[in-house]
Nucleic acid binder design. Sequence first.
DNA 1: GTCTATAGGCGGATAGAC
DNA 2: GTCTATCCGCCTATAGAC
Lengths: 210, 210
Amino acid sequence: MVDGKLQDHSTEEKIMDAAIKVFTQKGLAGARMQEIADEAGVNKAMVHYYYRSKQNLFENIFKKKVKELFRAISIILAADKSFEDKVRSFIETEIEVISQFPTLPLFVLNEAGKNPAILEEVFEEGGPKQMIGLFKMMVEHEVNQGNIRTISFEELLINIMSLCIYPFVARPILQFVLDKDDLDYKDMIESRKQTIADLIINDLFIKRDQ
Amino acid sequence: MVDGKLQDHSTEEKIMDAAIKVFTQKGLAGARMQEIADEAGVNKAMVHYYYRSKQNLFENIFKKKVKELFRAISIILAADKSFEDKVRSFIETEIEVISQFPTLPLFVLNEAGKNPAILEEVFEEGGPKQMIGLFKMMVEHEVNQGNIRTISFEELLINIMSLCIYPFVARPILQFVLDKDDLDYKDMIESRKQTIADLIINDLFIKRDQ
DNA sequence: GTCTATAGGCGGATAGAC
DNA sequence: GTCTATCCGCCTATAGAC
């Protein structure tokens, strides 16, 4: 922070990385400042020195991570592609982003569920809400043009999100009941990029309402 | 417990009900024995008197709830119905059961994620694994008969679970970004009984593999 | 069975030397 | 900036009177 020299990881960054790991694994209530310090290889007092309080550090991380989750998606939707390609990219990117950090969705959903008020701060600065608006316009345009069957943007959005995200959220339980090791599970998720997209797309282009 | 007289709620039951409420809202780490006692309207010492320790009370509840979630489904699958009707009943029942206790899925998924070892105890006594086996046989039979397109039972199971459960898990965040009040959200979920079933069924009966 | 009181330890936060 | 030592409140659990 002080000078311009390249440091692999400043203390501040080491603490942030460690805190992300511990908070996403244990949650706000389950995390311990001592564990964050140990994970970062620094003294517990340093954690307070840089981030003041546990609550403050947590909110810091929560906001940062929610924004990351939505950023990639926004870029896809704004791209110059056909509707079908956007939907396929949407799904593929969503799965790829989450694969980088598979514990993130459960972390975010869980903490948002325990303290919904925190969402209001995070969703101020346009990001997610803007993405939703963009998606809504796209879908309604396609429906009005008769390119896809009649469907609300909400239904489509929830279907896509459900199919992409749930396998990460339910991973331990699914892996257990389906007797899959880590590699099998990764392969399964990888293959879903294709199958989810096919499921969604086929549904959209089929005539259902007479 | 002692005599046969009907009591609306014995102390033991009041504590259990209170503990379910607090644990499902706050999680294991976030729950407080004092809060459970207050919620039950009894003294904190009584909670320990009946259930010994926090950990013990928690595991008690966790196991009980996981079994409840799978019981209804097992009954559906064993019923004497066509495959399509079973799938439709499966979806409808799953949504209805969870609607009775909407915070349950996130609770179970979250705690299973934090301590996967707990699953091994719960899934001993046949229930869930048996249900999976039944479902697997059903799907493979339909595929072999050529009644539905080629699909693995795992893919189908995960798709159905995802579409049914995710809206409950992500409720706070979805309700927020979609600007829905509680009633709107309930209506939306209710309508999904039909739309999810249509999506799944249409996919199964379509020829995709040439 | 139900209560009060308290033990005992953990964990967040800070003071203060270096 | 980094460390050690310590404060203090909170929370689980139990002892013991009634």
